[in-house]
């Protein structure tokens, strides 16, 4: 069975059809998705800016420790609502260039975050009072900003079917 016919059979199923055809379910899930994104990514970017030396002037390990749980909580809500949205129209998603681009940038952001956490899991506090973060941390911050803004751009573009 090809991916497309798999998506078609998912789309014909009761859950997919239920979400898609409900007057309230799709808008509610979509709104949850967007609001969770603005909180999750909205908080994360301030940690990314801290890595680059902008915004919040507090020890980097403290900003990390205090902001990440909220970002993660927001991400979980965003992820679940995102799966449900995809579930409701998998054929449209899988054939959309912007959906595939979005998935790519979500994965890029995820890998980037994991590499960062791994690299600095014991040493982040060493940089608390450093005037400038090490190059690797700055690159991680910049990459995170770029990939999340690409996710937002691609996500928004999906709705317009530009090509």
């Amino acid at each position: 069975m090809s991916l497309l016919s798999f998506c078609q059979s998912v789309q014909d199923g009761p859950i997919s059809t239920g979400i898609r055809e409900s007057i309230w379910l799709f808008p509610i899930i979509e709104t949850t998705h967007v609001l969770a994104l603005s909180v999750s990514v909205g908080l994360l970017v301030w940690f990314d800016f801290r890595l680059l030396g902008f915004g919040i002037h507090q020890p980097v390990s403290r900003v990390h420790k205090q902001i990440m749980p909220w970002t993660l909580a927001g991400f979980i809500i965003m992820f679940i609502s995102g799966v449900l949205l995809t579930w409701s129209e998998p054929v449209k998603c899988i054939t959309s260039f912007f959906f595939l681009a979005k998935i790519f940038f979500v994965l890029l952001a995820g890998v980037n975050a994991m590499v960062f956490e791994w690299t600095y899991r014991d040493t982040l506090a060493d940089w608390d009072n450093a005037p400038v973060m090490p190059r690797r941390a700055r690159v991680a911050g910049a990459l995170s900003l770029v990939s999340w803004f690409a996710v937002i751009t691609a996500g928004r573009a999906m709705a317009y079917n530009l090509f």
């Binding site: 909180v39 970017v45 803004f149 937002i152 751009t153 928004r156 573009a157």
Partner: peptide, 20 residues
């Protein structure tokens, strides 16, 4: 869509800062 995307970028930064 382009203007809306910038609207959303700024909104994400603003919401994040306000929530913090």
């Amino acid at each position: 869509p382009i203007i809306e995307t910038f609207h959303l970028f700024a909104l994400t930064l603003l919401f994040g800062a306000v929530v913090i």
